[in-house]
Simulated scan of single mutants.
Amino acid sequence: MTASPTVRRRRLAAALRRLREQTGMTADQAAKEVGISKSALSRIENAQVSVMPPVARGLLELYGVEGEEIDALVQIARDARKRGWWQAYDDVLPDWFGVYVGLEAEASEVRAFEPQLIPGLLQTADYARAVIRAEHPDSSNEEVDRRVELRMRRQESNNSPKLWVVLDEATLRRPVGGVDTFRAQLRRLIEESDRPGNTVQILTFGAGEYGSMGSAFSVLSFPELADSGVVYVETRAGSLYLEGHQVREYSRVFEHLVATAASARESRDLIQEAIDER
Rank of each mutant, 00 (worst) to 15 (best):
R8Q: 15
R10W: 12
A14W: 04
A14H: 04
A15L: 12
L19V: 05
R20G: 02
T23A: 08
A27E: 04
A30F: 01
I36F: 08
A40L: 11
S42R: 02
R43E: 07
N46S: 15
V49M: 09
P53C: 03
R57I: 02
R57L: 04
R57E: 13
L62A: 05
L62H: 08
L62Q: 10
Y63R: 08
D71L: 10
A72P: 10
A72E: 15
R78A: 00
A80D: 10
W85Y: 12
W86Q: 09
A88H: 07
V92F: 09
V92R: 12
V99D: 01
V101T: 10
V101H: 11
L103Y: 00
E109S: 14
E109K: 09
V110Q: 08
Y127L: 07
A128Y: 02
A130C: 13
H136F: 14
D145Q: 14
R147Y: 09
E156K: 15
N159M: 02
K162P: 00
W164G: 01
V166K: 01
L167F: 05
L167W: 04
R174I: 13
R174F: 12
G177N: 12
R183A: 12
A184M: 07
Q185N: 11
L186I: 02
L189T: 11
V200I: 14
Q201K: 05
T204M: 00
Y210E: 06
G211E: 02
M213T: 05
M213Y: 03
A216F: 01
V219L: 15
L220H: 08
S221A: 15
P223K: 05
E224R: 15
L225E: 14
S228H: 11
V231K: 10
L242A: 08
G244L: 11
S251W: 03
E255N: 14
H256C: 07
A259R: 15
A264R: 13
R265G: 13
R265M: 11
A274I: 01
A274N: 01
E277Q: 07
R278C: 08
